[in-house]
Amino acid sequence: METIIKQDRIALKSLKVAQFASEETLCFTAIVLFDGVAIAQARNDGRGGSTFLHALEGKAAQLSEAGQFAKGLSPARFEGGITGQDDAPLIINMTLDFLVDHLAETQHTDRKLRTAFTRDIGNKVLFIKNGKLLFLKGVKLKTITDRPAYFTALRARHTLPIVILAELPPDEAFALWKRYVLSDHPS
């Protein structure tokens, strides 16, 4: 989804996605949290219909409050309109079920990206050089026993400065990798 909805009161936990059953929408189940408290079960059958929210026992008032909070958020704006090529943007007023859909999609996408990153960072010597994400063919990071010496030698072979992702903290390496992988001009 191209819109990032900024809020910190509504979240999901125990997200389970059935990718094989996702047709028009993401097929999922999850627990909805409001201010850190579980208030509802959410589910979408993946066929393009709405996400259904069922209050957990004794949580109907909190579910209603969460719905009011969601309605108070700014509308979602999609440039390019319905077709993606329209001049006018598509604007959707916020609802709790729409927000839950967005959170599920975002969380699922992040999981898939993290899985791909973990595979890449473990199997490749990834580095940034001259604004491009590159890797060494035939060299697996896990097989390098003396990484500091190897990375020093790698830097010496390049005239331009390089940033080696394996030397960065995991979250920083992931953010950098993601920026290059998801850019309009991937390397």
Rank of each mutant, 00 (worst) to 15 (best):
G49C: 11
Q7N: 02
R119M: 11
K137P: 09
I31A: 10
T83Q: 00
P148K: 07
G49K: 10
T152Q: 15
H185M: 11
H54N: 11
L134D: 02
L160A: 14
L134N: 13
T83P: 00
L15N: 07
K6F: 12
E172P: 04
H158M: 13
T25S: 15
K71P: 03
F117H: 03
G67L: 03
A88P: 03
L113V: 00
F127W: 08
G84Y: 02
A156Q: 14
Q62I: 06
Q85V: 12
A149Y: 07
D86K: 11
Q7P: 01
W177L: 04
R47Y: 14
K140V: 08
M94L: 12
L53C: 06
T109Y: 12
K124C: 03
L63V: 07
S183T: 07
D146C: 07
F135K: 12
E79G: 06
N44P: 04
L141Y: 09
F135G: 12
K13S: 13
F174H: 01
D110P: 01
G58N: 09
L160V: 08
D101Y: 05
A55E: 06
P170M: 07
R179F: 11
L134S: 10
R114W: 02
G138M: 02
L113S: 05
A149C: 08
N123S: 13
K71W: 05
A173T: 04
K178H: 13
A104C: 08
R77C: 12
Q85D: 12
K178D: 10
M1R: 13
H102T: 08
L90F: 14
L133C: 02
V17Y: 03
D86N: 14
D146M: 08
T3V: 15
P170Q: 09
H54K: 13
R114S: 02
I10M: 02
R43S: 15
Y180I: 05
I91S: 09
A30E: 03
A38S: 14
K142R: 12
G138I: 00
I39L: 03
K71E: 15
A40I: 05
L15W: 04
I164N: 00
V181I: 15
L12N: 01
K13V: 11
G36F: 04
L56V: 06
G72S: 07
L176Y: 06
K140I: 04
T83E: 00
S64T: 12
A175Y: 05
R179L: 13
K137F: 08
K124V: 01
F98R: 15
L168K: 10
L96N: 10
F127A: 02
F174P: 00
A104F: 06
N130F: 06
M1K: 13
V37W: 07
L126T: 02
A18P: 00
L56C: 06
I128Y: 12
L182G: 10
G36P: 07
A149P: 08
A11W: 11
K178I: 06
F151I: 01
A173F: 00
L56K: 11
G122Y: 01
I91T: 14
S22M: 00
E167N: 08
D171I: 02
T95L: 00
E57L: 12
I128Q: 09
D110I: 04
G46A: 08
G81C: 04
T25N: 08
D110K: 09
Y150R: 03
R47T: 14
K112Q: 15
G49V: 09
A173Y: 02
Q41F: 12
K124G: 03
